[in-house]
Amino acid sequence: MITLIVGKKGSGKTKKLIENANEAAQKSNGNVVVIEKGLKLTYDLSHQVRLIDSDAYGIQGADALLGFISGICAGNYDLTDIFVDSTLKIIGHDMKALVQFTEKMNALSTQADTRISLLVSASKEELPEEISSFSVQI
């Protein structure tokens, strides 16, 4: 299952991510992963959450992020939740690429039986129509 957490900069998306990730870590019988650009959330997340800096692994672009997340899923059968902060910064500010990426993440989520949440810095009105079928939190 894919969830999009959308809103303009300063709208509270990261706070929502922190709450959701910490809650998932408490309830999960498996592993919770947060992927972000930089390590700003180090002290906000529970020690049970695996925090990964996308910059440390040179992840740039939708295909690189998809491959990285696929590798995480392939190497960890106990993975229950993945949260991706700053999705548009990592894949590029291209809404068409976001649509394709979201569709691929949805397929991966089903295959790996993992919940995936993507934070998108855009208003709901800016999102392409193709994304409206996914669960959107504001």
Rank of each mutant, 00 (worst) to 15 (best):
M1T: 13
L4C: 05
L4W: 04
V6C: 14
G10L: 04
S11N: 02
S11G: 08
G12R: 00
G12M: 11
K16G: 07
I18C: 03
I18T: 08
A21T: 01
E23M: 10
E23L: 10
A24E: 06
Q26G: 08
Q26C: 05
S28P: 03
N29M: 12
N29R: 15
N29I: 12
N31W: 09
V33M: 07
V34T: 01
I35D: 01
K37M: 09
K37W: 09
K40W: 08
T42I: 13
S46L: 08
H47G: 12
H47P: 14
H47D: 15
Q48R: 14
R50G: 01
R50A: 12
I52A: 07
D55F: 04
A56W: 10
A56N: 10
Y57A: 06
G61K: 05
G67A: 11
F68Y: 13
G71N: 13
C73W: 01
C73R: 00
G75P: 02
G75C: 08
G75L: 09
N76L: 06
D78V: 08
D78M: 11
D78Y: 11
L79Q: 02
T80S: 15
D81S: 08
V84N: 05
V84E: 06
D85F: 03
T87Y: 03
L88V: 05
K89R: 12
I90C: 06
I91W: 03
G92F: 06
H93D: 15
D94H: 07
D94P: 06
D94M: 02
M95D: 06
M95Y: 11
K96L: 09
L98R: 02
E103G: 11
K104G: 00
K104H: 08
N106E: 14
L108S: 04
S109M: 03
S109R: 04
D113Q: 14
D113T: 08
R115F: 13
I116F: 06
V120W: 00
V120A: 02
A122E: 09
A122I: 01
S123K: 12
S123F: 10
K124F: 00
K124D: 09
K124G: 04
K124T: 07
L127P: 01
L127I: 04
P128I: 06
I131W: 00
I131V: 15
S132I: 05
F134C: 05
S135E: 15
S135K: 15
V136N: 00
